[in-house]
Design a protein around this nucleic acid. Structure first.
Length: 339
DNA sequence: TCTGGGGTCCTAGGACCC
DNA sequence: TCTGGGGTCCTAGGACCC
């Protein structure tokens, strides 16, 4: 039995790279993509290219901060359709290399490989580059977690291999937050338990983790730290479980009528999405983010799953009606659970 | 630093039933 | 009369990821 070898392919600075591809004159200049491309407006950075990252601009940074850090950057609006099209081209290329391709977002995929995987990886990089103009990094591992972790060390445009044998040498002394799936909050809570490093989490008492993080999450954290992951590459196309539409107002809104009109508009978008994609909505959740940044949600189930615009807007209105709209609102959203 | 938009999964608590 | 122990469903919130 040959242990499986998995590749994690990650397109470098994907969103920014797609923009530079269609605007070659931007190559070499700092490029920041996000929001409406208006750095004075509300919004955050979706992707900054490497030139912009040198100025401390990164994903999630408010655009207003980004322009302060890098005034000479070119700011571009987020163009979902362009990235979806580019993503499809990349995934088409990858499908040519394997029967088992798991698409993981626009710019990432896992695939099973055999033979000399380093050679395969280089071949993938060349082919992606030649047919799409995009550069990618590839992690190689004996499971998905290690392949995914490896690709972060391969950036940009490199190849990195990380298997069970190398795991603790590479990851053991790193902070738990560097693990895929552990963010700031969990890292902080682990720190309160005296667990700072990956090797400490790997050795931590399972019962303690379970008590603090719950029956699913607790054991998973320990496994994560040991680099364990038994999930398989799943080539089945993903069927969305929900669809949401949300909007941050350019300025906080105090008038409940304006909020209501926006919720109605979003609910109609949801209904249109359901109808056009042949899906039924079983419940509607309205999200309201009040100033300064307090988020609340209320949901309402439909009597029976439906794609009817009247039923969906009525449910949204019903959910919204359960809010006390007595404070300024900065965001509203409408989510549908899809059957 | 004044914090988008679109997703997934998990947890906790209450309702309800046997 | 001061109260069990499950199981399941639902809701709201939180954490994380791209």
């Amino acid at each position: 039995v040959v242990s499986p070898v998995l590749l994690h392919v990650d397109v470098d600075e994907f969103v920014a790279a797609v923009e530079v591809l269609r605007r070659p004159e931007l190559r070499g200049r700092p490029v920041v993509v996000g929001g409406r491309g208006e750095p004075r407006a509300r919004g955050v950075v979706a992707t900054a290219n490497y030139e912009a990252r040198r100025f401390g601009v990164h994903s999630g940074l408010p655009l207003r901060t980004a322009v302060r850090r890098c005034p000479e950057a070119v700011f571009l609006p987020f163009d979902r359709d362009a990235y979806e099209a580019a993503s499809e081209k990349v995934m088409e290329v990858l499908k040519g290399f394997t029967d088992a391709l798991e698409v993981w977002g626009w710019d990432e995929a896992f695939l099973e490989a055999s033979g000399n995987v380093e050679t395969v990886a280089r071949d993938i990089q060349r082919t992606v580059s030649r047919t799409t103009g995009l550069s990618c990094s590839i992690g190689i591992g004996d499971n998905k977690l290690r392949a995914k972790t490896a690709s972060s060390f391969a950036k940009p445009a490199g190849i990195y291999r990380l298997s069970a044998r190398e795991w603790f040498g590479v990851m053991g002394d790193r902070r738990t937050e560097e693990l895929w799936g552990i963010g700031k909050k969990s890292a902080r809570r682990l720190g309160e338990l005296g667990i700072e490093k990956v090797h400490e989490l790997a050795e931590a008492d399972e019962e303690v983790l379970e008590r603090h993080f719950g029956p699913q999450t607790g054991p998973r954290l320990g496994a994560l730290a040991r680099g364990e992951d038994s999930s398989r590459v799943n080539p089945a196309p993903r069927r969305a479980k929900s669809r949401s539409f949300e909007i941050t107002f350019e300025e906080n809104v105090e008038d409940p009528t304006t909020v209501g009109a926006e919720v109605l508009r979003l609910a109609r978008s949801l209904a249109a999405h359901a109808a056009s994609s042949n899906r039924l909505v079983s419940a509607v959740t309205v999200k309201v983010r009040f100033a300064p940044f307090v988020t609340r949600s209320r949901s309402m189930r439909l009597k029976s799953p439906s794609d009817d615009v009247k039923a969906i807007t009525a449910a949204a209105a019903g959910a919204l009606g359960r809010f006390e709209l007595d404070r300024p609102v900065r965001l509203v959203g409408v989510k549908g659970d899809l059957e």
